[in-house]
């Protein structure tokens, strides 16, 4: 009997903590966002002595040249596509911008002028995520 009570207490606490986490993580709404630009850039990923480092984003030609000039180490060139999104934030009704990786919001290539659906937080204007 006491074991059932203890299990009930644990279940109630877990439910309360889960509810708290849900509320605190913030509600979000589905909004339409317009792609205002798509830019292609590269970065270098270096691995040396078990540690990974990253270069800043750069035009791919410059990153390729830097990769060839860099001293011998394990390096990889990564191509990225950044999309700048324009959307009306449900948090304040104002127009907001966010730049995110294309692959996080769409499985197919986007182009300028496309309209996609994303999730935007209802209390903070800049926080967006994929559907």
């Amino acid at each position: 009997m006491s074991q059932r009570i203890l299990l009930g207490v644990i279940a109630l606490c877990v439910a309360a903590l889960g509810g708290w986490y849900f509320v605190r993580s913030g509600r979000s709404a589905t909004v339409e966002a317009r792609v205002v630009s798509v830019s292609q850039q590269c970065y270098l990923r270096f691995e040396r002595d078990g540690a990974t480092r990253y270069s800043k984003l750069a035009p791919c030609e410059a990153a390729k040249a830097a990769a060839q000039a860099a001293p011998s180490t394990t390096k990889a060139l990564r191509l990225t596509r950044a999309v700048e999104l324009l959307y009306v934030s449900p948090a304040n009704g104002a127009v907001a911008r966010a730049t995110v990786a294309e692959s996080t919001v769409s499985s197919s290539p986007l182009k300028e002028g496309d309209v996609i659906r994303i999730r935007a937080k209802t209390d903070r204007a800049g926080v967006v995520s994929a559907l």
Binding site: Y43, Y54, L79, T80, A82, V100
Partner: peptide
Amino acid sequence: KTSISSIDCATAEMLVGYDDDMK
């Protein structure tokens, strides 16, 4: 768990989309 701190934010936004470890 992989983490990296004090990184340029534009790069960080791309890492979560394209990097082997951070995707």
